[in-house]
Design a protein around this nucleic acid. Structure first.
Lengths: 339, 339
DNA sequence: ATTAGGCGTGGGAACGCTCCCAATTCTGGT
DNA sequence: ACCAGAATTGGGAGCGTTCCCACGCCTAAT
């Protein structure tokens, strides 16, 4: 191989070298059906010898498919990127797309450029769109679908938006956490919930309620604190709980960062973890491994989420309108030393 | 606008509606030169009315340019993505590319897929390549250049690789840190250096030496510890320094994480920061803001680095072989309470 | 032997655009 | 009023593929 001419070889040249017609060469490269072994062999040799690479543009022109998928990330969320969870999703997406031989076109859309974004997202450029972390009140997915492009959203969009989505099953995960605390014999199980106006906040709280109910435990107002997913709010929440109900012996925190804050508050108050109080988080962020003690938490797999988004998008692109339009990913409990 | 036909409008249709020829319409969209105002106006109206979007594939086919740039990230580095520094670079790249109206094709290349990577990276698919975090001993950039594709590497590649690169000026930054410690009246200035086989490690050490020399201070072996950029190694290094030279009153750590470890070791040993010992880090990672006390550190701008990589690549793509082939980005000192 | 049916095969047409050249229109100078 | 030259303009050619149709050849049935 490897003699590299000034200009890349074309299919025609490959065919010529193989002593076959253009059509046959094309068939070898694609479908592969209906080609004699002799011809196939010859073409494959020619490809190797010339180092032939199909021209994506020419192919896209005639097939009307680009084999590219856009990943749109609302750039306004500066944080999005640095967060391990999102990083994981992106990696999952990348891997799944590579397997499907699709290209990943990354679009960091800052608010100002929204106009040209919609303009760009057309069948002319990509075959489908993956959307990450759009603002709650965003109708972008619907508008993109209006252009005839398949869309899948990561995280649940607001209910009136008619799009495919993939999200973690927050309710189930929170239920797991509570069940585990019950198992550990905890009798006063509290929660530090997230913001009620975020899906992750409200559904994890829902799961907490469901978990207690399933175990025939009453819901006690005094055992519910609200945070905003920050470490500081977790600490505040824990202090409030200790204040209202000193006998609390188990806490489910709606995310790991708040759990870290809770751990800190418990330490301040001289409570031992897990001897006096069991703490469970949600997310299995890297930090969960290095808290003191290491945090029991609900594991969600960002990698799987990315993969699932791609799977759903590919299905949609293939024409089958999947029902239900969304997928919930199961979670599992990772038991460490905080419970 | 907005009546959306089953099939996207073509240039031909735009021209027809505008009552001009295909050539003229094309001229309006591109160069724009040599077109009468009347014609231009008509074409622009037609474009708006039809909601015309040029077909990238058709354009690429004839111009032999894709207007797309690949960003290759060696996926083996799982961490790469979650790290704020890399996240920042990617954002900088994204913004710069958007400004230049180029598409960003993200390629998460795991080691296994290396073969098809090189196969894919051809003029047939992208016009240029941005490479992030390749392993030190990697000749990938040279091989890509061999295919006739412009390449820019983020971080300095090994010296025998002939590629454009953008890196932070580690030597200058470390010098800044040392000069600052001297300014603060510190007399026993130590360093916790990074691995000697990493560019960031060796050049920051080089900067430390240069800084001391510039201040007419001798280099004292006992004031040099080696770490591996991890927090734990920072703590170990600091303990070793305290052990060898209890009078140490200033430390330059080759990254923030090691500085965090150093802070921790100093606390264990009852040294007050900054009263007894001044500590300076390198990176200005988010964590530097939340250490106790907040960390003085050398700030490097990942965003700028991404932008610079793109600028360099675009220059290379434009044909001018920039000299020097690499760019060093200046750093600045962010003084917080640890010094 | 003769012919119907398959299997492979070759290559024309088309995808939507830019490039470029020849044709047309316009300008101003004589 | 006429002409040279500049300013615009229209549209053919061609970019590299895939799609598809028609053609030849081989096998097996009559």
């Amino acid at each position: 191989m490897a003699r590299r001419p000034r200009t890349r070889p074309t299919l025609e040249e490959v065919a010529a070298l193989a002593g076959v017609g253009r059509g046959t060469a094309s068939r070898v490269i694609n479908g592969g059906a209906k080609v004699s072994d002799r011809a196939r062999q010859a073409v494959e040799n020619a490809i190797a010898e010339l180092g032939y690479v199909p021209n994506a543009a020419a192919r896209a022109l005639v097939t009307r498919r680009t084999d590219a998928v856009a990943l749109v990330i609302a750039e306004s969320e500066e944080r999005v990127f640095g967060e391990p969870f999102f990083a994981g999703i992106v990696r999952g997406i990348g891997a799944a797309l590579a397997t499907a031989e699709r290209q990943l076109v990354l679009i960091l859309a800052d608010a100002r450029r929204r106009g040209s974004l919609e303009h760009y997202l057309t069948r002319q450029h990509v075959d489908g769109v993956l959307l990450l972390s759009l603002h709650g009140d965003d109708t972008l997915p619907d508008r993109i679908r209006g252009h005839g492009l398949p869309v899948v959203v990561g995280g649940r969009p607001r209910p009136d938006v008619q799009t495919g989505f993939v999200d973690v099953d927050n309710v189930q995960g929170a239920g797991l956490a509570v069940a585990h605390l019950v198992d550990r014999g905890r009798t006063r199980i509290a929660t530090i919930a997230g913001p009620a106006d975020m899906v992750a906040g409200s559904s994890r709280f829902e799961g907490y309620v469901a978990g207690l109910t399933a175990a025939d435990r009453p819901i006690d107002e005094r055992l519910v604190a609200r945070g905003d997913f920050s470490q500081e709010s977790g600490a505040r929440g824990m202090r409030a709980l200790l204040d209202r109900e000193p006998a609390v012996d188990g806490v489910f925190c709606a995310n790991d960062l708040m759990a870290v804050g809770a751990l800190q508050a418990l330490r301040e108050h001289g409570r031992r973890v897990p001897d006096d109080v069991s703490v469970v988080g949600f997310e299995d962020a890297p930090i969960a491994r290095s808290t003191v003690p290491p945090l029991t938490t609900v594991h969600q797999s960002p990698w799987a989420m990315g993969g699932e988004m791609v799977a759903l998008l590919l299905e949609t692109m293939a024409g089958s309108d999947p029902t239900p339009p969304g997928r919930m990913l199961p979670t599992r409990l990772v038991v460490r030393q905080s419970s």
